[in-house]
């Protein structure tokens, strides 16, 4: 609905809402430095991305632990857990140097304390991972920064859904 004085609508301009969809295909794949002409990626950047794989593995493990501790909550957050796993897959694809998982199949050490508010514990775990991805995204460049920023935002969304 437009104000009566507004000119005839011209459509959401490409810039206004849809512009950013262009040129993101590479970012969507979590592309790394292999592209011809792409900027060099430092060892520190590569190591940091691998480190974020471990962070995301902790999130996946936290969802598994929360579900084990509270099956009702586990059923409620099943979709969130699936999304966390999807995020992990894409992050691993973007960080081929990351070692094999040591967390996802062994969630011990990522379990809610006995008697704890499981939902609150899970939310804190997700929030901590979101902060970590966000900080790493600021330190990275290009598609890596885009991917990590998106992951961080996705987990902030999870936090909101868990509130």
């Amino acid at each position: 609905m437009l104000p009566p004085t507004a000119p005839a609508p011209r459509g959401f301009s490409r810039r206004a809402l849809l512009a950013a969809s262009a040129g993101l295909a590479l970012a969507a794949t979590g592309c790394t430095s292999g592209s011809t002409g792409a900027p060099e990626v430092s060892t520190a950047e590569t190591d940091q991305l691998a480190g974020q794989v471990a962070v995301q593995e902790t999130v996946v493990a936290a969802y598994a632990s929360a579900a084990a501790a509270d099956p009702t909550l586990g059923a409620e957050v099943g979709e969130l857990a699936t999304q966390a796993g999807t995020q992990l897959e894409r992050l691993r694809a973007a960080a081929p140097s990351a070692g094999p998982s040591t967390v996802s199949s062994s969630p011990s050490g990522t379990a809610p304390p006995a008697g704890a508010d499981v939902r609150g514990w899970l939310r804190s775990q997700v929030g901590a991972a979101a902060r970590s991805h966000a900080d790493a995204g600021v330190d990275q460049t290009g598609a890596r920064a885009a991917l990590l920023g998106s992951l961080a935002a996705g987990l902030r969304g999870h936090e909101a859904a868990l509130a």
């Binding site: 969809s21 993101l24 969507a28 999304q83 885009a146 998106s150 992951l151 969304g157």
Partner: peptide
């Protein structure tokens, strides 16, 4: 809408 969250905000889905 369900789900209310998305794994990759701002990135093309798929």
């Amino acid at each position: 809408r369900t789900p209310v969250t998305t794994p990759f905000p701002g990135l093309p889905q798929g």
